[in-house]
Amino acid sequence: MKFDVNSPVLFLITACVIAVVIAQSVFFLVRALRRAEELGIPAEKLKKIMRTSAIFTIAPAVSIVIGVITLSKDLGIPVPWLRLSVIGSLSYETIAASNAESAMGLRFGSGTPLTSSQFVTIVFVMTICILAGILLLAAIGGKLQHGMTAMKNKDRKWAATFSNALFIGMISAFVGYIFCDVGKLAQGQTYGLIPVFVFVISMGVMVLCGTLMKVYKWNWMGDYALPITLLVGMASAIPLTAWLG
């Protein structure tokens, strides 16, 4: 078959793999819903969780579509569609594809047409490099679970603190990242303040949502507080970028 980065057969292969990914999600969803019923978690609560999760996902998922568009300039549509639907993320895939292209004397982002050999080389590099997590998880997932259960049985309060510390550790890394370009102010560049202002506005919106819930008893807002915060924060970036960018 004649090679093309957008060959219909590549779309077909990707669609088949993605069907398996959806099947896995449905498999775990059905089992978790059954277990939730056994645990006596009210159906209404589960519906709320599912509704909020779906709404919250829309904006980040659209940003993944932008990632597919970005990568498609070099790799066509099917491979970025596959890589960003299974395991990958834009930053990982860009680096992997860029390293593979550099190794073959190409420059990522140049849009140079790829030969079939170059294309499969890139796909092999992207695939092999991303598999460590999934393989290790298969090997030790059960052991990690037993370790966490043992810690919880030994000291319940420490287990809760441990869990909170994990979340705070992750959040602190991302908060640090938000400030990473603030130092550019010394050179007269103000664009580093854009993420900081977006972050502060987003915090303010979350506080406002919490206040409205408390004062006016708008409990429904709890379901939408994070999606609202995310959208207002992202929207605020538009005038902020025009001002500081």
Partner: peptide, 13 residues
């Protein structure tokens, strides 16, 4: 610019 600032908007809330 809105999609470029998704992480600050997300981690603020």
């Amino acid at each position: 610019p809105a999609f470029a600032q998704m992480i600050p908007a997300l981690f603020g809330g």
